[in-house]
Amino acid sequence: MLRDPAPREAIPFGIAAFRIAGYVLWPFGRTTVEKPDAGAPSCIGNVIWVIFAGWWLALAHIATSIPLFLSIIGIPFGWANLKMIPISLMPLGREVVPTDEKFGGR
């Protein structure tokens, strides 16, 4: 008999990494919001994440956005890079949702 797959709560850091990867792949027209039912485990997980991965991911986004702002073509990607700082710094207890803002709207 086959076992049921592990629940989503069993691997929060892996799910957070895939959430970041999906947001990095296409950040335009989407934003991140905090989940109201996140709770204390996500807070503890965020502290662990910041210590081991979050701070250098946030610094990398800042460092890569600076050269992107130097060219006209790179400005939207620089802004997108800055939008990724909150989710890469503390990804647990957040979700990526679509926005009503159109990229490059008039």
Rank of each mutant, 00 (worst) to 15 (best):
M1W: 09
M1D: 13
L2F: 14
L2I: 14
L2S: 15
R3M: 12
R3I: 14
A6W: 12
A6S: 12
P7H: 05
R8V: 09
R8D: 13
A10L: 13
I11K: 14
P12N: 02
F13E: 06
G14V: 13
I15F: 10
I15R: 15
I15H: 15
A16I: 04
A16M: 01
A17Y: 11
F18T: 15
R19W: 07
R19M: 14
I20L: 13
I20N: 01
Y23D: 05
L25D: 14
L25A: 15
W26F: 13
W26R: 15
F28R: 02
F28A: 05
G29M: 05
G29F: 04
R30Q: 09
R30I: 00
T31N: 12
V33G: 00
E34N: 02
E34V: 07
K35S: 10
K35R: 15
P36Y: 03
P36G: 01
P36L: 06
P36M: 12
P36T: 00
D37L: 02
A38L: 09
G39A: 05
G39C: 01
A40H: 11
P41V: 03
P41M: 00
S42K: 09
C43P: 01
G45W: 11
G45P: 00
V47E: 06
V47W: 14
V47L: 15
I48V: 15
I48K: 12
I48E: 05
I48S: 02
W49S: 12
W49I: 04
W49N: 03
V50Y: 01
I51Y: 08
F52R: 01
A53H: 10
G54T: 02
G54H: 00
G54D: 01
G54Y: 10
W55A: 12
W56F: 02
L59K: 10
H61S: 07
H61F: 03
I62P: 08
I62D: 04
T64N: 06
T64Y: 11
S65N: 07
I66G: 04
P67N: 10
P67A: 09
L70A: 13
L70V: 13
I72F: 05
I72P: 12
I73L: 12
I73C: 04
I75Y: 10
I75D: 03
F77L: 02
F77I: 03
F77G: 10
F77E: 06
F77S: 08
W79E: 10
N81L: 09
K83M: 08
M84Q: 14
M84E: 08
M84K: 00
I85K: 01
P86T: 03
I87Y: 03
I87D: 04
S88P: 06
S88G: 07
M90W: 04
M90F: 06
M90N: 02
P91D: 03
L92A: 07
L92T: 05
R94W: 02
V96Q: 09
V96P: 04
V96C: 08
V96N: 02
V97R: 12
P98N: 01
P98D: 10
P98F: 02
T99C: 09
T99A: 09
T99W: 05
D100A: 14
K102G: 09
F103A: 14
G104D: 10
G104P: 01
G104C: 07
G105Q: 03
